[in-house]
């Protein structure tokens, strides 16, 4: 009877754990698209994580010390996931026309690692609730844990910290500008014509000093260019370096402007794509939380 109770607790934990992983896999799509084998890898790792989480309560209750030792050993394996993800993505990034950049890759790798811990936690909560209370109680608790994991993993996007609006592109002699922000000097007439015909300008106005510091990060800017390109395509090849999307900063106001030559010259879609770019953990900066930073802001 006791054994049966353990079994049900564990199985419930595993079911909720795998469901959590599956739900979070869906939002991975844009960050890490198109690898069916990647999905299988992550689902199986999610399964292992949820088994570990689901087994934790019965093991602790039975005081199975060897099992506890093995479990903690198994849990450390998940540290390698970050390393695996980072290596794969860095290798793939080298052949990208518009690379993701190291900050974005680090962010993705960290997310993949922490998702497994969330899975473990969900499984632990569900199996624990079932063991100590009842099936009826564990269901809503499991659903709540699932929802919390899901909302925890969503993170903030550029649209939350900055106003994203169109910016007008123009040339002054050979110099390319978006509004008053200087981009680069381009000599060739043909290149200038193409940029005027196909180029789109976007301006990002940070809401506050925290957002300004975040947007100043170069990794964050690479992520914005990469995400815009993945969604709208890019009018560029390896031998036309002029058409690489560029993001430049207005030193006076901290505004960021971007010039991009998408294949689909749809401004509204471009603005949406930029608004949906995740704010990278590594670029997140909060000068307003410090006394000096808060005092300096006016």
């Amino acid at each position: 009877m006791i054994a049966e109770r353990y079994l049900i607790s564990t199985v419930l934990g595993v079911i909720f754990g795998v469901t959590t992983r599956f739900i979070m896999l869906r939002s991975d799509y844009r960050q890490y698209p198109g690898y069916p084998h990647g999905y299988i890898t992550h689902l199986s790792l999610g399964f292992i994580a949820s088994v570990l989480g689901g087994l934790a309560v019965p093991i602790l209750v039975e005081k199975e010390l060897p099992a506890i030792a093995f479990m903690s050993l198994a849990a450390t394996q998940f540290r390698d996931i970050r390393e695996i993800e980072r290596k794969t993505l860095i290798n793939l990034d080298q052949t990208n026309l518009v690379p993701r950049g190291p900050d974005y890759i680090e962010g993705i790798a960290r997310v993949f690692e922490s998702r497994n811990y969330l899975v473990m936690l969900t499984a632990l909560i569900v199996s624990g609730t079932h063991y100590f209370t009842s099936f009826a109680v564990s269901m809503p608790v499991g659903a709540a844990a699932l929802w919390i994991s899901y909302s925890l993993m969503r993170g903030r996007v550029i649209g939350d910290i900055a106003t994203v609006r169109p910016g007008e592109i123009h040339f002054e002699g050979p110099n390319l500008f978006v509004e008053n922000i200087h981009f680069m000097n381009l000599a060739r007439e043909e290149v200038r014509r193409t940029i005027m015909e196909r180029g789109l300008g976007v301006v990002l106005e940070p809401h506050d000093d925290n957002a300004r510091a975040t947007l100043a990060n170069n990794g964050q800017r690479m992520a914005i260019a990469h995400d815009a390109v993945t969604q709208l395509g890019i009018y560029k090849d390896v031998d036309t370096a002029e058409f690489t999307p560029v993001l430049r900063r207005d030193l006076d106001t901290g505004r960021i402007a971007m010039i991009i030559l998408p294949l689909e010259t749809d401004l509204e879609c471009l603005l949406t794509a930029v608004r949906q770019v995740p704010v990278l953990e590594s670029s997140l900066s909060r000068p307003l939380q410090s006394r000096a930073g808060h005092g300096a802001a006016d």
Binding site: G173, R188, D239
Partner: peptide, 19 residues
């Protein structure tokens, strides 16, 4: 312009105008 274009394509560089 033509030389600049050819060289830019071959070297994957960018041509700048010193005016």
């Amino acid at each position: 312009d033509r030389i600049a274009t050819y060289l830019a394509r071959i070297t994957e560089g960018v041509v700048h105008d010193l005016e």
